[in-house]
């Protein structure tokens, strides 16, 4: 069994609303029962509600596998980087520290590393991964290129990432603006000093003149305390 070539994972973190559905769904996956492998990360919790759902990107040359002293991580022919082979992993944590996307997790009590394996029990029979099945904003989308092209006229997938001098190519795609052609390479380390945008919730229901906005400043002004 293997994941059909035409089925791909498309991630768009900017659509994520932080609802935790994927986290719950992930823990129901049969290959790592009861444990959620997806990281739903707050980018800067004190400042912003921005969240990132982080799944394994399934690198073509997986750093996690290469730094594993036990040779426990294997990539199958369909491009999926499998979780650690159970008799081999010695729970050293190298993969956890080395993964450029911060994906693997270590379970010291059981002496095993587990990570997102794209719900191999599901995707290898043509189903969507658990997280993509439940994501209400479709920040996590699993399907064909034709489907994503039709759904997202403004964006286009890329699977190349830059970390300093290192370029990493992955099986999983991230959506980037379509206007910028040729297809972009996402420079992750360039965002070192980036801060989340404060989301400016303006419904434009009222006019822009300061006098009308003024009373709106404290939405709870009329609430008795």
């Amino acid at each position: 069994m293997s994941v059909p070539r035409q089925l791909e994972f498309f991630v768009d973190p900017s659509r994520c609303i932080g609802c935790q559905s994927c986290v719950q769904a992930c823990s129901e996956c049969d290959t790592h029962k009861g444990e959620s492998m997806i990281h739903l990360e707050y980018v800067d919790r004190g400042q912003s509600v921005q969240t990132v759902p982080m799944v394994c990107m399934h690198c073509e040359q997986p750093t996690c596998a290469e730094v594993c002293p036990a040779d426990a991580i294997k990539r199958t022919g369909d491009g999926v980087v499998q979780s650690a082979r159970k008799p081999r992993c010695i729970a050293c944590g190298n993969c956890v520290m080395a993964c450029p996307f911060g994906v693997p997790e270590l379970y010291i009590d059981r002496q095993i590393m587990m990570k997102c394996d794209m719900c191999y029990d599901r995707t290898s029979v043509g189903k969507k991964p658990m997280c993509a099945t439940v994501c209400p904003s479709q920040a996590l989308f699993f399907g064909t290129r034709a489907e994503i092209d039709a759904l997202r006229p403004q964006s286009t997938p890329t699977n190349r990432f830059r970390f300093g001098s290192q370029t990493i190519t992955t099986r999983v795609n991230v959506m980037v603006p379509r206007s910028k052609s040729p297809p972009l390479m996402l420079d992750v380390t360039a965002a070192m000093d980036e801060r989340p945008e404060n989301r400016n919730v303006r419904l434009n229901v009222v006019g822009n003149s300061p006098s009308t906005i003024e009373p709106m400043l404290d939405p709870f002004a009329e609430v008795e305390v």
Binding site: G102, K180, L184, L186, E197
Partner: peptide
Amino acid sequence: PRCRRAMFGLAQASLWTGHTASSED
């Protein structure tokens, strides 16, 4: 690892807000 995940999100978001966390090849 936590900051790596945050940077991944920030880098992608910045493409949409016009910052320049991207490079053409």
